[in-house]
Write a protein that binds this DNA or RNA. Sequence first.
DNA 1: CCTTGACCCTGTACCTACTACGGAGTTTAC
DNA 2: GTAAACTCCGTAGTAGGTACAGGGTCAAGG
Lengths: 149, 149
Amino acid sequence: MRMKISEAAALSGCHLETIRYYERIGLVPAPLRTGAGYRTYGTADVDRLQFISRGREMGFSLDEIRSLLRLNDDPNLSCNEVDAVARGHLAEVQRRVEELTRMADELQRVISQCAGTARGGCTILGALRRRDDRVAPGKEEGRAPSAPP
Amino acid sequence: MRMKISEAAALSGCHLETIRYYERIGLVPAPLRTGAGYRTYGTADVDRLQFISRGREMGFSLDEIRSLLRLNDDPNLSCNEVDAVARGHLAEVQRRVEELTRMADELQRVISQCAGTARGGCTILGALRRRDDRVAPGKEEGRAPSAPP
DNA sequence: CCTTGACCCTGTACCTACTACGGAGTTTAC
DNA sequence: GTAAACTCCGTAGTAGGTACAGGGTCAAGG
C-alpha cells in the first residue's frame, strides 16, 4: 500500500527531487518514514502530488496551487474563489500568449526581410542595432525627427 | 559626451542595476571610470546596451544575445549564423505560444464547465483532482457526488 | 556471509535574468 | 555649507526546480 518516493514520483508525474522540494517548501506535508528514514507515501499523498502536477501542466504557479489545494481541502466548497484563481491565471496566460505572439511576428518579419536583402547587411542585426527609427509600441523618446542634433 | 550610468540606463532602456549586472557577467565590457570610481559611458556603450535591450524585447536569451553581439562585432559578417540563431529562437517562441495556447484552451474549458454545473462540485478542482484515463492500476473510481447543502 | 548495485538520505550549489537591499562615498543644487 | 540625489560594492532574494557530493540501506546472487 505505501510506496517509496520513486514509485510516488512515477505515479504522480512529479520528479523525485521535485517531490522533496515540494516537501521542503511546505506544499505537501512530510510523509511517514520507515525505520531507516525512507519516505513512504500513501494514495492520498500521491493524489496531492498529482493535483500539483496537473496544476503545473496548466501553468499555475506554486502559490496558486497552494491556494487551490487549500480550497480543495476545505469541506464547505468555495467555488467562487477557485473560479477567481483560474480566471486570473487564464488572463495571465493569454497575456503571455499575446506577448510571445508579438515577438514571433517581429522575428518573422526581420528574418524574412533578411532573406531578401542579404547582401546589403543583415537586417536581423540591423533591427537590433538601429537607432531611433523605432515604431514599436510604448516608448517615445522626446526626439524631434525634424531637428536632429 | 560621456555619461553616468543613470543616463545610459535611460537612453538604452536597460535598468541601471541591470547594466551593472551585464557588466558583471561579461555581456558588456567594463566602462571607463571617473576619478571617484563612477562608471562613464560613451555612445558605443549605449548602442551595445540598446542592442541587448532590443534583443530581450524579442525574447532572446542573454546567451543568444551574446552570440549575436559577437556576430555583430565581427567584420566579415556571417548572416547565416545570425539567421540560424534567429530561426532557432523563433521556433522556440512558437513552441511556447502553442504550449500556452493549449493551457489557455484547457483553462477556458474547465472554467466554462464550472459555470454551468456549479452545484455538482467544482469542475476546476475536479480537473485537477481526477484520477483518470492515465495508468491507474486497478483503482475504483466510483465516488458518488454527494450534493452540497 | 559478503559483495554488488540500486535505491534513498541530507545539504548545498547551480540555473535565468534580474531586483533589492545595506552601508558607504561623491556630486550637485540651493 | 549642507542636504538631497546619485553612485559604489557586495550580498541575498525571487521561481521552480536540477544536480551533485558524500554518505546510509536494502535485495539478490554467489
